[in-house]
Design a protein around this nucleic acid. Structure first.
Lengths: 344, 344
DNA sequence: CCTCCTCCTGAGAGCGCTCTAATCTTGCTC
DNA sequence: GAGCAAGATTAGAGCGCTCTCAGGAGGAGG
C-alpha cells in the first residue's frame, strides 16, 4: 500500500501553498503571510489557513521560498577535518546559534585537502548560502576574498588580512607561551616544539614557543609535524633520531600529542617521568584519563558561536566593517607533564 | 572599495544564465544545455557559451535549478552525535559516494535528542532533499515512514520493519558473540555486559552477549549504560558497587569502554591484569595506544557507502524494493584483554 | 451620509532555471 | 532539386513561493 501523496487530481506532488489557499478559501498571498507568521492577518483567517495546511499536510518548499525571497537562510560551514574532535565542538557552537536564529547549515569537509575545500566552497556558492564559516581552512586569501564578495565570511582559527572577512581566533602566541612557562616552571630546560606544519594556527603557536624560549634564554628546537596522530608519531620518531636530550615536548595539537606520546612510550620513555608532553586544543581526547594530557584550552563552543553571530550581523544587521574576535587560551594541567628529571 | 557584482545595469546580482546567453548570442535554452553538459550542442556554440560564462563569472544558481528540475541533488544526512568518531567515518563513506555522483550533502546532528532529530528531519523535508540517510537515529518508525513517503530513506545502524526503507547494519549479535567467545577463550567466566540503553544497536549486542553466555553455560549479568564515556564510567561504578567478582566487561561501544576503563583504573584495578575490557566499533579511540582497546570492528566507511548507494539506487535507478545490507563485524584484539586471573 | 485613515486582502509580476514541443538547418537519397 | 530524416536551436510555459501595490472594508470625524 503506497501512501497517497498530496491531494486531489492525478499524480500530484506534495501540497503547495496554492492548495492550502484554495482549501482555506483565501488568496495565495494571504496564505503566504500566515506561513511567514506576519502579524497583519486577522485571527480568523490565520486559523483557517493553518487548519487547511495541517489538513493537507502542507510543508513549505524551502527551495521556492529561497528563489523568491533571494535568501536561503542557510549558512555554509566548511570544516577541514571531521575526525578532529576540536571541530565538532566548534560546530556545536555554530549550530546552536543557527538553530536559535532559524538558519540551516550546509556542512562540508575539506578532508584536509585544498582542492576539496575549493570544490566545497564552489558548491556553497552555487547553493547561494547567505553566509559562510570557514574553520581552519586551507583556502588561499584570494579564494576567500572572492567568496566574501558573494556572501559574508567568517574565519575560525585562521587569520586574514582581508578587510571584508571576520575572524575568530585564539591568541595562540599566548597559548604556546603559557605552555612553555608551565614547563619551565617544572624545571624543564630542553623543550622541543613539534609544530603543525602548514596548518592554520601552527605559525603563531611556534612563534609563542620561540618567544617564550628566547625570553627564558633557552635553546629552541622546532621539529616539523602536522595536526594528526600519525604526523605526531612520525615527528617524535625524528626527534628520537636526533639523539638530543629532551625533557619536554610541546606539540601543536592534541592529536599530534597523542601520536607523540605513543611513539615515546614505544621507545621506552615514561611520561611524564622522562619526558613531559603538552598538547593544544583540550579536545575530549586530552580529557580522557588514559591520555590525560596537559594542554591548552580554546573556548571552542564560544568560538563557533562568535563566528555564527558575526555572519548574522552582516546578513541581518548589515554590518560591513570587519571584526576580529580573539579569545583567550588557558592552560589545563593534567598528567602528561611533571618535574623535569633531575630537578629536585 | 566594493567589488562590482555582476555586470551591466544598476544593482544587479551575480550573472544569470540569461546574461550568459545574451553575451554568447544564443538562447537561454541553449546555454542551459551547455551548462548541463548535454551532448546535442555544436562544439562551436558550446565553446562560445563557455567563454561567455567564464567572462561573466557565471555560477549556476542551484536553487533555481532545483526548483525548475524538481530535484535538489542533495541528500540529507542525520548523525545523532558528531562527537562520536564512529559517525565521522560513516560520514566519510557517504561523502565519498556523494562527491563521485555529484550530490550535495545537507548534514544535521540530532545531538542525541529525539526532538532535535525531528526538527532536523522536518528541515530536510522542507529543503526537498532527494534522499535521506539516518544514522543510528532515535526517530520513531512512524516518523521514518512518513519521511520515506517523501524521499528515499536509508537507515544506518538501525533496523526497521518498514518495507519502504533500506538499511545498512552490522550483525551485532554476531559481533557480541565474537567478543564473548574471545573472553571465554582467555579463560574468563564472570563476564559482565554494560549495555547501550535505548540506543539503536544496543539490543542486538545484548542479545549476542546473552546468547553466547547461554551457549557456554555461563551466568549473565547485564548493567544498563549508554553510548557515552560518562555513561560507561557511571555503569562501571554500579558494577563495582555490586561487589560481584568480575573478570571481564563487554561494553556496547568504545566511548563507553573508555569510561569503564577510567573508572576501573581509578578503583585500583589493572587492565587487563584484573579485568579485561572489550569495546565495540573500533573507533580511532580504540586504536590509540593509550587506550589500546580490544574491540569489535564495523566497516564504517563501507556502511556509509552502502547507504548512499542504496539511496541513489532509489533516486536514479527507481528501485522500490527495500534492501538490507548486513555487514560482518570482526574482532580486533588489542591490549585491554588478557587471560583471566587465576587461569594459568 | 460622506471623507479620510487605518487595516487587510488579492492580483500579478517575477526569482533563475529546466524541459517540452516546435522550428530551423543540414545532409542525403532518389 | 524535391523530400525527408536527423540534429541543432529556440520559444514559452512553468516550478512554488515572495513581495509590491492597488483596491476594499470598516471606523472615526465632520
Amino acid at each position: 500500500m503506497t501512501a497517497p501523496r498530496g491531494s486531489v487530481k492525478g499524480i500530484k506532488g506534495p501540497a503547495t501553498l496554492e492548495d492550502v489557499a484554495r482549501e482555506a478559501g483565501v488568496s495565495r498571498a494571504l496564505a503566504s503571510l500566515v506561513m511567514r507568521q506576519k502579524p497583519q492577518v486577522s485571527e480568523e483567517r490565520r486559523a483557517r489557513v493553518l487548519a487547511a495546511a495541517t489538513k493537507l499536510g502542507y510543508r513549505p518548499n524551502a527551495i521556492a521560498r529561497s528563489l523568491a525571497s533571494r535568501r536561503s537562510s542557510t549558512v555554509g560551514v566548511l570544516l577541514n577535518d571531521l575526525h578532529n574532535p576540536f571541530f565538532a565542538e566548534i560546530y556545536d557552537g555554530i549550530e546552536q546559534v543557527a538553530r536559535r536564529r532559524g538558519y540551516r547549515i550546509l556542512l562540508s569537509t575539506g578532508g584536509r585537502s585544498r582542492a576539496r575545500e575549493e570544490a566545497a566552497l564552489e558548491a556553497f556558492l552555487e547553493s547561494r548560502v547567505d553566509g559562510l564559516i570557514l574553520v581552519s581552512t586551507l583556502l588561499t586569501e584570494a579564494k576567500i576574498n572572492q567568496a566574501a564578495s558573494m556572501a559574508p565570511v567568517a574565519l575560525v582559527s585562521r587569520t586574514s588580512r582581508s578587510p571584508v572577512v571576520d575572524s575568530v581566533l585564539t591568541d595562540d602566541v599566548l597559548g604556546a607561551e603559557l605552555a612553555v612557562a608551565h614547563l619551565i616552571e617544572l624545571g624543564h630546560r630542553r623543550i622541543v616544539h613539534i609544530d603543525g606544519g602548514r596548518n592554520p594556527g601552527s605559525r603563531p603557536r611556534r612563534k609563542g614557543y620561540e618567544r617564550a624560549m628566547d625570553a627564558a634564554g633557552l635553546k629552541r628546537l622546532v621539529i616539523s609535524g602536522d595536526f594528526s596522530e600519525s604526523g605526531g608519531a612520525e615527528a617524535a620518531g625524528r626527534l628520537l633520531a636526533l639523539a638530543e636530550t629532551t625533557t619536554a615536548v610541546l606539540t601543536s595539537n592534541d592529536m599530534a600529542a597523542a601520536g607523540v606520546m605513543d611513539r615515546l612510550a614505544e621507545a621506552g620513555y615514561s611520561i611524564p617521568g622522562d619526558i613531559s608532553v603538552v598538547g593544544y586544543d583540550n579536545t575530549s581526547l586530552a580529557q580522557m584519563r588514559q591520555v590525560n594530557l596537559t594542554t591548552i584550552n580554546q573556548p571552542r563552543g564560544e568560538m563557533g558561536r562568535l563566528a555564527m553571530q558575526a555572519v548574522l550581523e552582516r546578513i541581518e544587521g548589515g554590518r560591513t566593517k570587519a571584526v576580529s574576535h580573539v579569545t583567550t587560551p588557558t592552560l589545563v594541567v593534567r598528567g602528561s607533564t611533571g618535574p623535569a628529571p633531575g630537578s629536585s
